[in-house]
Design a binder for these strands. Structure first.
Length: 313
DNA sequence: CGCTGTCAAGGCAAG
DNA sequence: CTTGCCTTGACAGCG
């Protein structure tokens, strides 16, 4: 079981991501910022390797205005040596990276201009992953979008617009349930229709449940079927509610007791992306817990024996 | 220097 | 139809 964290690394010097406002954009500024951000990414990847973290989400802010026409720098060319350096580190360490466009990338919008921008944004995310030379197990996690008073139509719109995407982008996209519009049942319908993997998010499902009689394990088992061999190990998102904030707000850190109860019930052949304020700190905390957990440790040994047996046949 | 407001994005509820 | 709120981390600018 791999544990990962998203985008930022707490307490690591020289690993921040810089940006600028739209009105201050120019080539010189962008070049400086991109160079700085690639250095930060390199530093973070090094940190992950040193801490045995094999799962990591790369921030969408890596390239400022990466999917906007105001940024026409061929950054994948200009900084090819920086990308190559990071690529080697990712590959040699066996790290799985991913990206996750935000709530403003809406592929199923009724507005053509919004769909166009969503397509461009997905192309940008794919370009980053391609520039890093990672395979299609490195996914782009996407939410479905808005409902527009008609979920059936909005669902069809997503499925139709998905067909417009480049083949390379399609191979990377996985869909995730959200906490406002599309619950895990809705997303499974779409994932199965498009034959693409589904990421289950436990907290989103708590805020926007699909079927209250079903538990996390049930949905994770259904989602497992959507992960084909070439997609890599099934991936889920795990987070805990911040008791003091709005429903769906991520906790400041992962409480190990709850994490333990969750993990006991699920398959160990799984990648778990944490969404939590203290980021890498909770990832290390959870990794340490798994290392010390005797039950898990024994099952991991069982699993590796099983894999070995399978390979022999 | 440190704090508060602003920025980017799109959906959606309220007016 | 228009306005304002939601979210996030970092920029921008005021005192």
């Amino acid at each position: 079981m791999n544990i990962g964290y998203a985008c930022l690394t707490v307490g690591l010097p020289e690993a921040n991501f810089r940006s600028c406002t739209l009105k201050n954009v120019n080539d010189s500024t962008l070049l400086t910022l991109i160079k700085h951000n690639l250095n930060s990414l390199d530093t973070i990847i090094e940190y992950n390797i040193q801490n045995n973290i094999k799962l990591f989400r790369i921030t969408s802010d890596l390239i400022p205005f990466g999917s906007s026409i105001v940024n026409n720098i061929p950054w994948w060319d200009v900084f090819s040596s920086e990308f190559d350096s990071i690529r080697e580190k990712i590959k040699n360490s066996g790290m799985r990276v991913s990206m996750h466009p935000g709530q403003y990338t809406v592929l199923n919008s009724p507005r053509q201009d919004v769909v166009k921008r969503a397509v461009e944004d997905l192309n940008y995310h794919n370009k980053v992953l391609d520039s890093l030379g990672v395979d299609i197990e490195s996914k782009i996690i996407l939410h479905i979008g808005g409902v527009y008073n008609n979920k059936e139509k909005a669902t069809r719109n997503f499925i139709d617009n998905f067909q417009m995407l480049d083949e390379g982008v399609k191979q990377r996209i996985v869909v995730e349930n959200d906490d406002k519009s599309f619950n895990i049942g809705d997303v499974l319908t779409i994932g199965l229709a498009l034959n693409i993997p589904v990421v289950y998010d436990n907290l989103h499902n708590r805020v926007l449940p699909s079927d209250l009689s079903k538990d996390d394990h049930y949905w994770i088992s259904l989602c497992r079927e959507t992960w084909k061999k070439e997609d890599g190990v099934q991936k889920i998102h795990y987070s805990q509610q911040d008791a003091k904030k709005r429903p769906g707000a991520h906790s400041s850190t992962i409480a190990i007791a709850d994490f333990s109860a969750f993990v006991q019930k699920i398959d160990l052949n799984m990648d778990v992306m944490l969404e939590v304020k203290d980021k890498n700190l909770s990832a290390i905390k959870c990794l340490n817990y798994l290392k010390e957990d005797r039950r898990i440790h024994n099952l991991e040994l069982e699993w590796s024996k099983y894999k070995y047996t399978v390979l022999e046949h």
